[in-house]
Design a protein around this nucleic acid. Structure first.
Lengths: 137, 137
DNA sequence: CAGCATCCGTTCCGATACTG
DNA sequence: CAGTATCGGAACGGATGCTG
């Protein structure tokens, strides 16, 4: 049986087709994870190359240490990111995308770019919807 | 001045370049919005065509009325979705993607498909990371 | 059918203080 | 430099009951 377009991947652990619309499908947890507040920014940032902890902090304005660490640990667990520690003093820790992480970065970067490209259309839509709400009063 | 690849869109309201890495850039709120728990599923579901409220509930397993309504209102405000009410009894409400919504659906669907395609690799990575954590004990 | 209103537990997340 | 630990408020989100 070969792959044909439109055919679902089978989840090996369950033998069921991968389907984010199913509440219990593990793809759902992955999607939830990806749509965390900082995940997209971290993955996208690492696409440009290796970054250290502080470098990520600087690149991603507004992220706290706690959230950055938490996000990186999650990405590591899912196999998207590697963490390399150089036991020097002071310590040096580098983060990189794995091959899996780089493949995830593609759709993620597309999403970031889409947002940056269409921001003015969205803001115009928002302005319309708030003015409509006001005149309904 | 014409568009060249790699050039940022200018946010009309502020005159600053669109940049999700900037904490105060409006693109950041949009990205936060898109990465809500249900947004991706709703947009992706509507790509297949018009759906009614109950149809969306059925399609997206596990979503509550509250969250579905909230998500749809947000998508409407951002100009991604239209809501059409037919004042019949019982009422009939149809949801559709706008043109802007359909353009957003592209990267979103790519993300869903990526998740469904790579789920087994991710689960293997997770299994590895939990076994490593265990043997560190 | 397509919601809205309310309650309420859970999770998120930022701020702060501290460490090898 | 690269984190860990803890606290408290805010937001998320599910369950339930009600409505035109």
């Amino acid at each position: 049986m070969r792959y044909s377009p439109g055919m679902k991947t089978m989840v090996e652990a369950s033998g069921l087709p991968a389907d984010v619309y199913s509440a219990k499908c593990p793809t759902r947890q992955v999607l939830d994870h990806i749509s965390g507040k900082w995940t997209i920014l971290v993955v996208d940032a690492l696409l440009e190359g290796t970054l250290r902890y502080t470098g990520l902090m600087r690149r991603i304005e507004g992220v706290s240490q706690k959230m950055l660490t938490q996000t990186l640990r999650g990405l590591e667990a899912d196999g998207f990111v590697t963490r390399t520690v150089y036991p020097t003093i002071p310590p040096r820790v580098e983060y990189d995308l794995t091959e899996l992480g780089r493949s995830l970065a593609e759709p993620i970067t597309a999403l970031r770019q889409w947002t940056e490209t269409h921001i003015n259309e969205i803001e115009r839509a928002r302005a319309r919807s708030t003015s409509e709400a006001a005149e309904a009063t």
